[in-house]
Write a protein that binds this DNA or RNA. Sequence first.
DNA 1: TCTGAGTGTTGCAAAAAACGCAACGTGTCG
DNA 2: CGACACGTTGCGTTTTTTGCAACACTCAGA
Lengths: 292, 292
Amino acid sequence: MDQKSLAMFVHLSQTLHFGKTALAFHMSPSTLSRAIQRIEDEVNSELLLRDNRTVMLTEAGRKFQHYAQQQAEQWQIFKQSLDETQQALTGKLSIYCSVTAAYSHLPPLLERFRQQHPLVEIMLTTGDASDALEQVQNKSVDFAIAANPENLPRSVYFQYLATIPLAVIAPTMNCIVQQQLSEKILPWAEIPIILPEHGPARKRFDLWYRKKQQGKPNIYATVSGHEALVSMVALGCGVGIVPQVVVENSPVKDRVQYLADVGEITPFDLGICCLNQSKSQPLIKAFFNAIA
Amino acid sequence: MDQKSLAMFVHLSQTLHFGKTALAFHMSPSTLSRAIQRIEDEVNSELLLRDNRTVMLTEAGRKFQHYAQQQAEQWQIFKQSLDETQQALTGKLSIYCSVTAAYSHLPPLLERFRQQHPLVEIMLTTGDASDALEQVQNKSVDFAIAANPENLPRSVYFQYLATIPLAVIAPTMNCIVQQQLSEKILPWAEIPIILPEHGPARKRFDLWYRKKQQGKPNIYATVSGHEALVSMVALGCGVGIVPQVVVENSPVKDRVQYLADVGEITPFDLGICCLNQSKSQPLIKAFFNAIA
DNA sequence: TCTGAGTGTTGCAAAAAACGCAACGTGTCG
DNA sequence: CGACACGTTGCGTTTTTTGCAACACTCAGA
């Protein structure tokens, strides 16, 4: 019964829903189910009553919930007390990510790390998110914030950060694209489209467009870097597919609009990556430890 | 990082000796070593400094020790609070053990269990400890207190209770045996010997006697049940080999003496046994839970 | 009554973790 | 220097955990 199991139980005792909690912890419901069974077996009491439709805490469950929360709290206190003791690490840590990630997801991570290890020099490089994994594999950087590709190379470790929904965006200004979009049945084969050169967003597009069965897309341009893509859309060059978060952090945000009713585009998982082989290095370990 | 690992660390932080702690937890030093490494990895700090000769706590180690002890305490409190909630179990639980075990090792186990489940009827059968495992496999009883044979059947579960040292005993009264024992070089081939019919003590004797290379032993009698063996020795029939604890609980204790300098006899492990398949039964689980 | 969506659980095979043994490196003491 | 004591590491084996797919069950709406 480790920290993680306890956290899972606490979460579950609040949602009272195996599916949701399993999702929150990025595991299958069966795994969660078994983990709870293990706990119940260990304390030799039923903690949750499940009747195929609802889940509810038993009396013992409430007590365990209290115990688990208390546990987690003390664990936090202990870790914090360690931070005080821990002699400061020094050195350089290089990180690669997109401009957007540097705005949206990196700051909270770095903040906690720098608080614990103020002497470590952070070297941040920004660029096309699609190149992130390559940068890690090259050993050009220690870490990268990257999307999880379907086939993650064996050599890299991936720790989930967030789920990134994609969106189809169009210019708000009056232009040819605008007119095409105002038609009843969208002429997908004609609308100029701007795409990422490669990377998960590109793959998502290919999949999504094929579903429409509209023949070949009219690809106006491919660009490297989602941020540039938003600019091009804003300029009226065409419609594009990008992560929502990129749009929201874009200075031209109000010159593009989301296209609704374009069908589901499966979001991708954003995470922090490093080489498996370097996971044992002190700075790397300290970083993961700080963001955990 | 489970309860057991924490307990191991606490023990180790007191002994400061991997070998001893490993022994105390019935595992190999390597397992303990790795468990500690896992913990250190998880907290990302060295907790113990080992320099091939000595082990000492670091500052972080002291903090973790405090945390671990606190953890264990809260776990106890939680379990106890559960006991209050737990609706009383009822039924029968049958246990088999030797008369000596019923005196020496059973009472503390039963006490805790009966406190939690006063409605469960305990059915205790005493007999030769060597038959204990058989009784369990027969399903004649739910539990038995038994010695761990070298080749424990797959079907039975064994939980360690104590290490039982064996001793060679002789009568204190004046008799032939006395005279033989007073000789300078003990005439082992002539001294009458009383032995358990079978079981671990018998095996230990065979091994021990063979080491002496004195030819065939003069076996005066074989008896079933260690308690009876002590009686026969007390009566002056010969010397015998039995668990020390049997002697100490014997009413004829002062009519026998331990023979010193007879060489090492490897002690055996005493434990509580049940069928693996019955470990999931509520009463059985409750019992193990109570004695854990 | 039937169907379909939404739940949690279980059989199974694959993957991961833990274990013990044996060998090793490194100190200490006679 | 040689024997010993102690913790660690390489390696093959065993145990545990995992996710997928199939299942069992309930409820809502046709």
